[in-house]
Design a protein around this nucleic acid. Structure first.
Lengths: 150, 150
DNA sequence: TAATTTTGGTTGCAATTGCAACTAAAGTAT
DNA sequence: ATACTTTAGTTGCAATTGCAACCAAAATTA
């Protein structure tokens, strides 16, 4: 019976650990790069959406964003259509950081896929997308206090 | 160009989040299930090895183990051959927890692989093992202060 | 429209996490 | 044998992380 949880966990921790160490040179603390990249790619995104995409608790995302705002890397503006929402954008300082982070991510991705043919790369990416979709419902449910039976 | 980092990160965080919530019923704190399972499967394992397998910082593993020991879930005994080493074992209490954790892991794995044929499952598992191997050297190097160029 | 639920966001804790910096034992040279 | 390096483990910070418990605005329902 194929086991995928452990490899996924180990690889994720390894890559995250590497990124965190490398981005200290950019004065980014642990985890902050995650948010920066997503905001760069979807300017105006709101907190809850960001947390849902990244699969982190919304309070975790909230504090990361607060910190990044305090450090002048991004800014929040009230949404014109919904007074509840705060849209998140990169500042010039944040934009300046983005290319380096992106380059590192691409490099790590390349390291991860060493020895994979283009076809294999595509297939793995496609598999992982499916897994992501599969796990999503359970994540939301458990987060909302629902109980899984097993 | 195929991107795998993000899916791996998101899936890992989701599954870890689910496990952490579910194992609170067993009075296990965040992350502790990881160590418990590995010790169950490799009794006598030492701290550094555990950290290397899980891809966590050794000080992180150290404190998790300390906590689990204090809670009577595992115990450490000095290695008979090397006075530096402390071998880690599960107590009866720890052994009692293991089956539930294992069952949850298998269930989550099943959810993750919903809609995958047996052949696809094997292939994904095999791909992930390769990725794990690929990333390992970089993780060790960066952890030891080495600099990656990109 | 008034009451209820859902959406989006925030603090208060209590815990993990991990980089430095350190000890001691073991291994490897010179 | 003595000095040096690696292995294994530990504490001291300073930060993230996330479950509760909360508030306010929007959407839904009665």
């Amino acid at each position: 019976m194929a086991e995928v949880l452990r490899s996924i966990g180990a690889v994720a921790r390894a890559l995250d650990g590497i990124s965190n160490i490398e981005f200290k040179a950019l004065e980014l603390n642990r985890g902050q790069y995650l948010y920066l990249v997503r905001v760069a790619e979807t300017p105006g995104i709101i907190l809850e959406r960001l947390a849902a995409i990244l699969k982190v608790d919304k309070t975790t995302a909230a504090r990361a964003i607060q910190k990044l705002e305090k450090n002048g890397i991004l800014e929040r503006r009230p949404s014109p259509t919904d007074k509840k929402q705060k849209q998140i954008f990169l500042t010039a300082k944040g934009e300046a950081l983005y290319p380096t982070i992106k380059r590192e991510n691409i490099y790590s991705n390349e390291v991860a896929l060493q020895g994979f043919t283009p076809a294999e790369r595509d297939q793995l990416a496609s598999y992982l997308k499916r897994v992501e979709g599969n796990i999503n419902t359970d994540w939301i449910n458990v987060k909302c206090g629902h109980h899984r039976d097993y």
